[in-house]
Design a protein around this nucleic acid. Structure first.
Length: 426
DNA sequence: TCTGGGGTCCTAGGACCC
DNA sequence: TCTGGGGTCCTAGGACCC
């Protein structure tokens, strides 16, 4: 073993090399997902800069943009107003999440045909572990290419695919493959592949961490190899340990199919800051309604409810509450959320730009109480309401809170709920 | 320039218990 | 009037990812 090699791999446990040998992880990512779906649905957009996320003068950021828009310097996460400055001729689209979700479901159905070990990283991104399926395929890279071909043919969307012996290398390979390409990190070539990649490529190195590392004159992944593990640990905590290992291409995380999500949340940033307590409570009720719809769809009950407020100065506060009995019903969750919200709002003199509600510590079924007779009446009622809504549209059956909401908002088919009145009182 | 929405994970500090 | 040490649970905040 050369000096360099020993330095590079010094932390690999002796047994891990043997353990990892033969693993094959594929990372697959749909290129410019939302924008690509919009182009597919409306071919007139093709060849023009498309920005999905909102209209030019709205509050908000670009969720995705196509490669034409990127030529103007626009990227995901950029404020819409700024994107408009860079490209006034860009086509700005609010986007339709439900349509993207339908494409996503189709995407994952295809992936599961190749292996049961699929981990969804987001709507448009997944890891596939092919290791267990070795006998099915002539070679791993050939199998990965087949997955890519199938998805592109059946969805009509371009994907980038990376192959490697673990998740981090597969993910970095995909980055190299973009757009629409295929890249495999071959065994023995890990060091060459990693050395000159920028530190910003490593997951976990965000804007804050980049500033710190660049001050230490560390710009490339190879520069990280000279940093002691203890130094990274003291700078970034547990995340630093990950950086130490991943910068060397070491990653033993399994590809993991998540069965129960950790949390479900809904939030809204208003077109203008709101100060009126009634409007805010009405909106909170609307969010609780959407949240509990999500819980019912997944048959989930929540042990923790959390309310988030972001003030006009962008400062964000949350209040949360641990429940003795997990909840799913709208009215019960709204009562908790209202208490939490008032705790936050009563002490502030600022108006709000955002409210949100989150349910976490989720379980699939509510444990039976020893003292209350079991009744699923509320649950069945809620499911019945969902069915009626689905059939006749939103607002057929209105609770008191929703009536209030209805008086304050109007529903515009292309814009969603829009404030009817200006906020005056608190 | 003025900063979305939906998530995951980590950390620090305080309360509480023995 | 003076109060340790260790563990666990809970809350709040924040970095980061897509």
């Amino acid at each position: 073993m050369t000096m360099k090699r020993r330095h590079f791999g010094e932390t690999a446990k002796p047994e891990s090399e043997g353990l990892m040998r033969g693993r094959c992880v594929v990372h697959i990512d749909i290129d410019a997902f939302f924008a690509a779906v919009e182009e597919l649905l409306n071919p007139a957009l093709k060849g023009k800069p498309v920005i999905v996320g909102g209209l030019p003068h709205e509050r908000g950021v670009a969720a995705t943009c196509n490669y034409e828009a990127r030529r103007y310097g626009i990227h995901a996460g950029m404020p819409l107003r700024q994107a408009y400055q860079l490209c006034p001729n860009g086509l700005f689209i609010r986007g339709n999440y439900q349509v993207y979700q339908a494409f996503s479901e189709k995407f994952f159905r295809i992936l599961y045909e190749y292996t049961p070990d699929v981990e969804a990283a987001s709507l448009d991104e997944a890891y596939l572990e092919l290791t267990r399926c070795r006998p099915l395929y002539a070679s791993f890279s050939e199998a990965a290419r087949r997955v890519k071909g199938r998805v592109e043919k059946e969805l009509g969307l371009k994907v980038s695919v990376g192959v490697g012996p673990n998740k981090i290398l597969a993910k970095l390979a995909t980055k190299r493959a973009k757009p629409a390409g295929f890249f495999e990190v071959e065994p023995g070539r890990e060091e060459d592949f990693l050395r000159d990649l920028g530190i910003e490529c490593l997951p976990g190195i965000g804007p804050k961490a980049q500033v710190i590392l660049r001050m230490l004159n560390i710009h490339k992944i190879g520069d990280l190899w000279g940093m002691p593990r203890s130094a990274l640990r003291s700078l970034f905590g547990l995340g630093g340990e990950e950086v130490y290992l991943q910068s060397r291409g070491i990653d033993s995380r399994p590809v993991f199919t998540r069965i129960v999500p950790k949390s479900v949340s809904r939030e809204t940033t208003f077109l203008e800051d709101i100060w009126d307590r009634r409007l805010l409570l009405a909106h909170l009720a609307y969010l609780c309604d959407r949240l509990t719809l999500g819980l019912r769809e997944e048959h989930l009950f929540a042990h923790v409810i959390e309310v988030k407020a972001r003030y006009s100065d962008f400062k964000t506060e949350v209040r949360r509450c641990l429940l003795l009995t997990p909840l799913q019903e709208m009215t019960a969750i709204y009562r908790v959320a209202e208490d939490l919200f008032l705790k936050l709002f009563s002490t502030s003199r600022l108006s709000l730009r955002l409210v949100g509600v989150r349910a976490s510590d989720l379980v699939r079924a509510r444990p039976l109480s020893l003292f209350e007779p079991y009744s699923d009446r509320e649950e069945r009622l809620a499911v019945a309401v969902d069915r009626v809504r689905e059939k006749y549209g939103f607002g057929s059956l209105l609770t008191v809170r929703e009536r209030m909401l209805d008086a304050i908002y109007e529903f515009e088919p292309r814009r969603g709920f829009v404030l009817k009145t200006a906020s005056l009182t608190r």
